Amino acid sequence: MNTAINAAPHTSEQLVTLFNRCFESTENTRLLGGATEPEYLPATSERGAQIHFTQNYFASALHEIAHWCVAGVARRELPDYGYWYAPDGRTPAQQAEFERVEVQPQALEWLFSVAANWRFRASADNLAMGLGPSEHFKDAIYQRAVSLTVDTVNPRVYQFSRALLARFQPGQSTAWLFAPERFARESL
């Protein structure tokens, strides 16, 4: 179970450094903070791909990295991976669609949070409508997170998980991280 307290020394700059060290040269992708809204920009002939996360929030950086890790090669050639997105103020039907597509990235964000010794919070991302994450959504995130412990994750997930462990939990192994007991439904 993840019982970390969100406190120093966690900074978004640490995540930027770790991510860029892992992927800037091999994947031609950089992580950048300070954005008003998160955004993914594919590589162009002038620059590599860019993942922009909100302000300098640690959790926003982890979440946007998770989206990048979910996206396949073709999706990484499209702005914002070609996904549908409706901003804050979604209707209940739009919220249900949001929750459907957010299960995988939020499960990965939870995995990265555990590796970074950071408290994960499921996000409905719909404050204006007063809709928090539904119990169904939390159940789906939990089930997907546990399945990540037995499924083979893609090399980017594995590499970034190892980098997070080395920085935030030296001495812990990926075997420790990829264990179902790291994820407790009641913590969501």
Rank of each mutant, 00 (worst) to 15 (best):
W176K: 07
F120K: 07
Q172P: 02
S123M: 13
F120N: 11
V103W: 10
F19V: 08
T26R: 10
T11F: 08
A74G: 04
W68Q: 02
T149V: 10
W68I: 09
G171W: 05
F168G: 02
A184M: 09
P87A: 07
R182C: 12
E102H: 05
S113I: 03
D151S: 15
Q143H: 11
R162Y: 01
R182M: 09
R90W: 05
Q169M: 05
E77G: 14
A59C: 00
S134D: 01
S147V: 00
F58I: 07
R144N: 09
A7D: 04
R144I: 00
Y142R: 05
R90V: 06
T3F: 09
H52M: 06
G132H: 07
H67M: 11
S60M: 11
H67W: 07
M129Y: 04
L188G: 11
N20F: 11
R144G: 00
E186F: 04
G34R: 05
Y40K: 07
Q94G: 04
M129A: 15
V114K: 10
A4H: 06
T11R: 12
R119T: 10
F58Q: 04
S173R: 12
Q169C: 08
A93Q: 15
F23Q: 08
G34A: 06
R75Y: 03
Q169D: 10
S25T: 15
E181G: 01
N20D: 05
E24Y: 11
Q94P: 06
A107N: 06
M1R: 13
A93D: 13
E186G: 00
Q95T: 09
Y40C: 05
T26Y: 00
N56F: 15
T11Y: 08
Y85L: 11
E13V: 02
A93E: 15
P105I: 05
G33P: 00
Q94K: 07
S113V: 07
A184N: 11
H67R: 13
I5D: 10
A116L: 03
F98C: 08
Q169N: 10
R182I: 01
R144L: 02
E13P: 01
R100H: 13
G132F: 03
R182K: 13
T149K: 01
Y142H: 15
P133A: 15
A145H: 07
E27V: 01
G33D: 00
L15H: 03
D139V: 01
N2P: 04
Q106P: 12
R76E: 03
D80A: 08
Q106E: 09
A7Y: 02
G132M: 07
Q169S: 10
A124Y: 14
S60F: 11
P9W: 08
L127A: 14
T54I: 12
Q94H: 01
T36Y: 11
I141G: 06
R167Q: 13
M1G: 14
V73A: 14
S60K: 10
P9N: 09
R21N: 13
E13M: 13
